[in-house]
Design a protein around this nucleic acid. Structure first.
Lengths: 359, 359
DNA sequence: CAACCGCGTGATAGCGCTGTCAATATCGCT
DNA sequence: AGCGATATTGACAGCGCTATCACGCGGTTG
């Protein structure tokens, strides 16, 4: 009965301890906090471990210590480059730290998200980063059960699970529309793909801005549930032209769409910005090199990832995180595609940053 | 001495077993393989687990069973969308399976890669997916020590660690240059950024093709170590124009560069393809919607990820993987940007696929 | 009809590490 | 010299699960 013992050739803490002439617990301490071990033993342990090629067993460590150094990250999509920027920030922040990242993608499904959160829970993660504020009640409960620091990223909301970092998509879009209105545009179209919660909020910002200026017209809105792409930008724009041939500007909920609109304009010989102004969203790198250069709304995605990760680490390591809801703001980048002769570009771009609650 | 016992309120296998009126080991079996437990107990265990909100402890499972269900994935960059396509394939393949993915990025550094492999080793991964064939000897040793299925992706090589899936970058580039030569181009530039091993191999393919056609000229090559971007495409092209004002075509080692070249041509009023033909690499989505549409070399990135993951799972689960080195080939997609009047586009695009060894 | 098989179940011991507490060594100070 | 404070080390037990073997039971086999 029982299981067979300790196959030879296996290198455990015990083997290292034997070779170094110390007790196993001292070796354990050496790996966790070298400073607590005297210099002499430190050297002996170090060389013993190297000689034997010792590799710590993370599972045993996690079981004994009742915690892990795994940070769970939940994002809706791997394809959308918006998230790769955020991820880069997250990975950069954890780089060199003892934490490792477990990445999962929800495919924009809250049920999937729930399932993945449950999976994360089995690992007893040290921290969680989740996208958006639209978790199910069940999802929130699971996160709470994980009993670890949590950061919601990408958006802001009134009821954070724990911590939160993002910006107001509605306000950002509102600012972009205001810019177009200031340029004299009145028939401003809205193109949106995928229509995830954040794009919905941009649409809300658009509607508010248009209504405030008394130029709202539902025919100016064209959306699709299909994911964003450059080609989709072209076809949504074609649809829009049918519904509203008199339009003078287009706001695109993604830069991919904006690029597609630009190409479609080139194809149809529509002058940009003279006949149709274009503004995108996210300020991807290519926007600045297009011809004409494309206006967009800059969002601080890399910084968002970086700071979310830092907030998690601060919280774990007992450094009080005072700013638990961070508004990173945005900036409307005015380029040629939305700069009309009749109203020369102002030198100070409109930018938004939280001063207190929502701005 | 010792540690305090079993705090109450904690739900372990034992608690579920007690409520269901069976032994803990039966509950363990139920979770691992429900079929081995009789129907009556199965139901009792199921409801007991649900009532108590039981969550298995992965660390304990891993420690006791001496294995995990973690697949380690090493890629050089999160920003480069080439890898996000591969990743999507990998995630899709493991979707719904019991495996979870641990993703790490090497930032194109073999030392970093070594460090990350060592980290993976501590988790006793069930499988590894690594990018490229240029691991250090030390890195290969670590991978071998992991004693699990390994797939190298993105390229092919003569000495696989275990399994391999990719295509020949040199051949793919060679085919693209052959296409341009067939169109009558002779002064074909090469633009490359980052110059990682795969881009180096594309450059090699370019050089071979140009030399075979006796039109090689080192002044036609412009590269940079800086990462690729659309803006970089424009500036590399500007550099190239200074070195070789008489060029009639440009091959770009990335589609981002190709887009940048197109914009730079628009800016300088250079007619594409009449004055300068353009071919990119990877066939990103936007290439087909540009004006003019941009030629590129299609690579099967999504399928590569999908199949790499499948190979890993097959190997773990004992299904023999016979095709251990898979050449996915590529396809030169001829679009307007490289279709010259003097030589109308052939209806059958050049495509390459391995027939035996290297083709 | 004994021997045998296979299924479902349980008892036991152990996976490799760390939390806890105790013991000892070292040091500064009165 | 004597005392407490601090640094360093060790013993022990246990983290929650599973590998292994043992056992009972009904059915098949020669």
């Amino acid at each position: 009965m029982g299981r067979k013992r300790n196959e030879p050739g296996k290198v455990r803490l015990t083997e290292v301890a034997a070779l170094a002439g110390v007790s196993p617990i001292t070796v354990s301490r050496f790996f966790r906090n070298p400073d607590t071990v005297s210099a002499g033993r430190r050297l002996r342990i170090e060389s013993a471990a190297k000689d034997l090629g010792y590799v710590p067993n993370l599972a045993a460590r996690a079981l004994a210590s009742q915690r892990t150094e795994v940070i769970g990250v939940l994002i809706p999509s791997l394809t959308n480059n918006v998230f790769s920027d955020v991820l880069r920030g997250i990975y950069d922040a954890f780089e060199g730290s003892r934490y490792s990242i477990q990445l999962a993608n929800t495919r924009y499904s809250v049920l999937q998200e729930e399932r993945l959160l449950r999976l994360f829970l089995m690992q007893k993660p040290a921290g969680l980063i989740v996208t958006g504020v639209d978790q199910t009640a069940e999802g929130r409960a699971i996160v709470q059960a994980a009993d670890c620091p949590v950061v919601q990223i990408m958006e802001l909301g009134t009821d954070p699970i724990d911590m939160m970092i993002g910006f107001s998509h509605a306000d950002a879009c509102h600012a972009a529309i205001s810019h177009l209105l200031a340029q004299g545009c009145r028939r401003i179209g809205f193109l949106g793909a995928r229509m995830d919660p954040r794009v919905q909020r941009r649409l809300q910002g658009y509607q508010n801005a248009m209504k405030e200026a008394s130029v709202f017209d539902p025919r100016l809105i064209v959306t699709t549930a299909v994911p964003t792409s450059t080609t989709m930008g072209g076809s949504l724009f074609s649809d829009l032209l049918l519904k509203a041939p008199d339009l003078d500007a287009v706001f695109c909920a993604n830069d991919d769409l904006a690029l597609g609109v630009l190409f479609e304009c080139q194809r149809r010989h529509i002058a940009v910005p003279e006949q149709v102004a274009i503004v995108g969203f996210n300020d991807m790198e290519f926007m600045a090199s297009a011809v004409p250069t494309l206006s967009s709304v800059r969002t601080n995605r890399y910084e968002m990832g970086l700071r979310a990760a830092t907030m998690i680490m601060d919280e774990i390591e007992g450094r009080a995180v005072v700013e638990r809801v961070v508004d990173l703001g945005f900036e409307v980048i005015e380029r040629q595609s939305s700069t009309l002769q009749r109203a020369p570009a102002s030198l100070q771009p409109a930018s938004g940053r939280a001063t207190g609650t929502k701005w």
